[in-house]
Design a protein around this nucleic acid. Sequence first.
DNA 1: AGAAATTTGTCCGTATGTATC
DNA 2: AGATACATACGGACAAATTTC
Lengths: 134, 134
Amino acid sequence: MPTPHYGLPRYRVIAEELRGRIRSRAIDQLMPTETVLMQEFSASRGTVRQALAVLREEGLIATAPGRGSYVREAHNESHVRKREDEVFAPSDLAELFGLPQGARLRVNETIVLRAGAAHTVTRVYRRLSDQGPC
Amino acid sequence: MPTPHYGLPRYRVIAEELRGRIRSRAIDQLMPTETVLMQEFSASRGTVRQALAVLREEGLIATAPGRGSYVREAHNESHVRKREDEVFAPSDLAELFGLPQGARLRVNETIVLRAGAAHTVTRVYRRLSDQGPC
DNA sequence: AGAAATTTGTCCGTATGTATC
DNA sequence: AGATACATACGGACAAATTTC
């Protein structure tokens, strides 16, 4: 099989599916083993592990060597969503950065969700020219 | 080659080495390409990418497809300005918090200044009912 | 306690897709 | 269009931690 990832990458699709199961609590505590997930999604181990890494980074699961991946109950109703975006700087921010009106800024947003609603929203603004890819 | 990882895993060793270079600024902006790192450390692409993923998660670098990995570190002396305020929630934030239009939010703002202009602006929004950090 | 089976962790090699220069 | 660089995906192999018998 080639490697067509036209839409979402396969590991993202798998992660999305597993995320839904976790939220609906179809999986109570212990997740299926990587081998089982490989068979279910007809994916390689690396791809499955990549999907699990996404959930791990979101704090939805925790993985222990030799045991498996567990749903983190404490974070079951509290997880984090991160995204990076470019926005047009509001006047106050433009002034702070010493940029002209209408300039664009890079913003990293972290949303901590609890029980469906935001608990904290953190936004970090930077210049496009500063560090990192832009 | 077998897979002897008696001490630290190889990708951890590579990450440690790169971290040191970043901190000593031997790498100013653009990191070596993955191919170069493969040759330098005689490691496979996957291992190199695993090392870079560590640094990326630490926020030390940022990677862009087709371009490369850039150093992303706020390393230097800089002024920090902090303030706390209450603001009327913009519609997008109100929705995230599950609050009605016109609701108020508490915002903690941290401005890192460099050479007079803002380097980063961090804004943390919370409900008024939430007390303290976290 | 010991051995075997299970499960995750690490590493390699290859191939192809996608983004950028 | 071509070259370069990162992203995704597969397969195989062995190591290390845990559980099971």
